[in-house]
Structures are given as structure tokens and as C-alpha cells.
Design a protein around this nucleic acid. Structure first.
Lengths: 211, 211
DNA sequence: CCACGATCATGACGGGGCGTCACGATCGCC
DNA sequence: GGCGATCGTGACGCCCCGTCATGATCGTGG
């Protein structure tokens, strides 16, 4: 009755069938190709066929996975947000107060975008920046998670109630834009940028680091 | 020798020739049509021919004035920035200190965008937001003007030197994003939004208005 | 081991927007 | 009033888009 010595089926046992595997492989290949193409040509100049050509697949195949260039871009943004979310959650769990959460979250975000840039935006033409994705599901989820974390940590330290929506919006705006400016400076100083953003949020102009 | 009673030329004397007049009229007509079309169809769905059709001009005429849909959009953004700049300058001139300038400038900006929205975004589909223009000449000029004003007013009150580029970036980011969120609320409360943004910039979280 | 059905890659095709260009009308000017 | 320059015009070729009929491949039940 022992089945240790026997391989009942000649093929190695991989959970997903081949069908399913090539499916996810193709989806990922298209995503990777899109990253490259957007990076090299810029979003506007990029073409569905530029993307699919790089995968070796046929043009029609693209539409089996995504409806349009816009959708594949949103999938890309979703992917980034999905990978960042665990980092954000970790910060919100280890944070003891509002300050430590904001500092941890912003630093984590700055390191994240710096790594992303380094990882696949190596060769970027000076041209137009990629569009911002605000409404994609995962990005909205990040927004919500920040607001929830704010609510939790502010309640814990009995802070007076403020307009959470505005606060979240403002903090994300500051992080996003300072983060972008940070990437244009050499060397990229995530610590310094985070310090500036955190101090602005926590104490406004008087608290800002001096030069 | 008196030429009071005589009209030496039968046509009324207007400074620019007819050539020049239809030129600026066409340029303006295209701009107005683009505003409408972007508002109704959204930026992505809009077509050069959608825009030019609304003016009654021929398709080729569009390209005598703008190179592409992108360029006409940038001209639109430039137009907005150009009309806002005097308001900003007025605030920077009447401001006595950093606080009064920030408050005046942000309130002016919020009132400006609220009016713009009311003026020509009456019928907007729930769809995607218009893209943001960061690099158009006039928009850059606004950025520079804010930074200059910051530098002036901070020097006047002997404030310690800070990272002006980051500060300007952060303030504009806050104003832009809070402004956008403000427009989604009914009724649109420019005073409340400005109060929030100003207090965040001047004093951070502890200074925020309480609910 | 085999056939049948389902799934999916393929690339050719029609549709449509883009940008150009040669033509003609209009304007400024002498 | 005539000439040259300027600019409106719309047809044209080009390219990209999204679809679809076809065939290949995989899973499955006999």
C-alpha cells in the first residue's frame, strides 16, 4: 500500500494544470512588458501592440487578458498598491502613536518608491511623468487603510476629532508629491524627505527642519 | 485740415487687421470647444475631430493652431494658470506675513477652482478626472511665484531657512488635493477647506480645526 | 489510450482617428 | 486692382484599435 516508491502518474505533480499556468504566466508577461514599454516610451506614446510584441504573443491575445492600455496600467498601479499594503499594515501595527505611524508609513513609502524606480525605471526618458492612478481598487484600499489607521491611533491617544478625510487626503498628497520631488534629487535621500514630510504634518512650518 | 467730419476709410478703424482677428478668434474658439468636449466626453474619449467639429472649422485647421489634443489641453491649463496668477500676485503683495499670505492664496485658489467648476464643468460625467498638468509653462510659473513669495515673506519675518522647494511642493500638493476633495462635498465650503489646509501648513496636526 | 468538448492563441480584417498636403479663397499691401 | 503671402479646406494614406473565424492545445470521460 505504500506509494512512496511509485509515481502513479508519469508527469510531475504540479497543482495547477498547464492551462491555468500559461494563463497566469501570460498575464504576468503582459504586465512586465507594459512596465518596460511605459518606462521606455512613456505612457502616451506606448501602444497595445508595443506591449504585446515584447511578449512574443499575438495581438489578439492581449485582449484575452486586458480590455485596453488603460486597464493594463491600472493593473500595474493595483499591483504596486497591493505590494505596498503589507508594509503599510506592518507600520500601523507596530506604531505606538500618531507620530511613529506617520514617520514609519512615510519612510516605508519613500523607500518603496525609490526601490521601484531603481528596479524598473532605470531608463526613463526625461519626458512626461506617468499619470497618477487614484481610483483603482487597490489604491482606494490604501487610502482607506491610511484613514482607518489614523482613526485607530488618534482615538488611542485621545486626540480631538478632526476631519479624517481631509487629513488623509492631505497626508497622502504631501507624501506623493514630496516623494516625487525626492526622486529627482541626487543622491535620493529618503530619510531627509521623510523627515521633512513628517515634521510638516506633525507641526507645520515652525517644526520644519532647518537648512 | 480738420478730419473730424470725415472718415478717410469707409471701414471702422480696429487696430488688428482682419487676418489677425480671425486668427485669435479661431484659437479661442478651439480652446472653448475643447473645454466643452473634455467636460462632456472626458479627456481620454475626446477626439481632435470632436473638438474641431464644434467650431464649424475644418479638421485641418486645428493643426494650424495646435499640434495635438495634448497641446490644446496644456493650453487650457496654461489659460487657467494665467488667469489665476494675478490673484496670487495680489495676495502676495498685500500679505504682511507668512500666515496671511498662505491663507489668502489658498482661499483665492479654492474660490477660483470653485468658480471654474461652476462656470464650465456643469455637466460632468461621473467618470475619470481630467489629468493634471504639472509641466506646462504657466503652471511652472505659478509654482515659481509661490516659491518666490514664500522666500520674500519668510525672509521679512526672519524665519529660519527651510527647504523652499519641498515646502512649495507640499503646500501646492495640499491645496490641490484638498481643493479637489472640497469640490466633491455639498455644499462646497471654500472657507472650511481653506481653514483646514492653512492650519495644517502652519501648525500641523495639533492646530487642525476640531469637529 | 483515445476522442470529444472547451479553452485559448493567432493574425487577418474592417473601422476610425490622426496628421499631411495640394488646392483655392481671402487678406494685406503697393 | 493685381500680386504675393497667409490660411482654411477636406480628401488621402497611415497606423492603431478591437474583433472574430480558425486552428491548435489541454482537460476529461469513456
Amino acid at each position: 500500500m505504500s506509494n512512496i516508491a511509485y509515481f502513479p502518474k508519469p508527469h510531475i505533480d504540479q497543482r495547477p494544470g498547464k492551462r491555468e499556468r500559461t494563463k497566469t504566466a501570460n498575464r504576468q508577461a503582459i504586465l512586465d512588458a507594459a512596465r518596460e514599454v511605459f518606462g521606455e516610451l512613456g505612457y502616451d506614446a506606448a501602444t497595445v501592440r508595443d506591449i504585446i510584441r515584447r511578449t512574443g504573443l499575438a495581438s489578439g491575445t492581449f485582449y484575452n487578458y486586458y480590455k485596453s492600455k488603460e486597464e493594463v496600467f491600472e493593473a500595474l498601479a493595483d499591483d504596486g498598491a497591493r505590494r505596498f499594503r503589507p508594509l503599510l499594515r506592518a507600520e500601523s501595527e507596530k506604531a505606538t502613536d500618531f507620530e511613529s505611524f506617520v514617520r514609519g508609513a512615510i519612510l516605508a513609502y519613500f523607500n518603496f518608491v525609490a526601490n521601484e524606480q531603481e528596479a524598473w525605471r532605470l531608463d526613463r526618458p526625461p519626458g512626461e511623468p506617468l499619470p497618477h492612478a487614484r481610483s483603482t481598487p487597490e489604491v482606494v484600499a490604501v487610502f482607506d487603510e491610511v484613514r482607518e489607521a489614523f482613526a485607530r491611533v488618534l482615538a488611542r491617544e485621545h486626540a480631538p476629532p478632526v476631519d479624517l478625510d481631509y487629513l488623509t487626503t492631505a497626508c497622502i498628497a504631501v507624501a506623493r508629491e514630496i516623494g516625487e520631488k525626492m526622486l529627482e534629487r541626487r543622491p535620493v535621500d529618503t530619510q531627509g524627505a521623510a523627515d521633512f514630510a513628517v515634521k510638516l504634518i506633525l507641526g507645520g512650518l515652525p517644526a520644519l527642519p532647518r537648512l
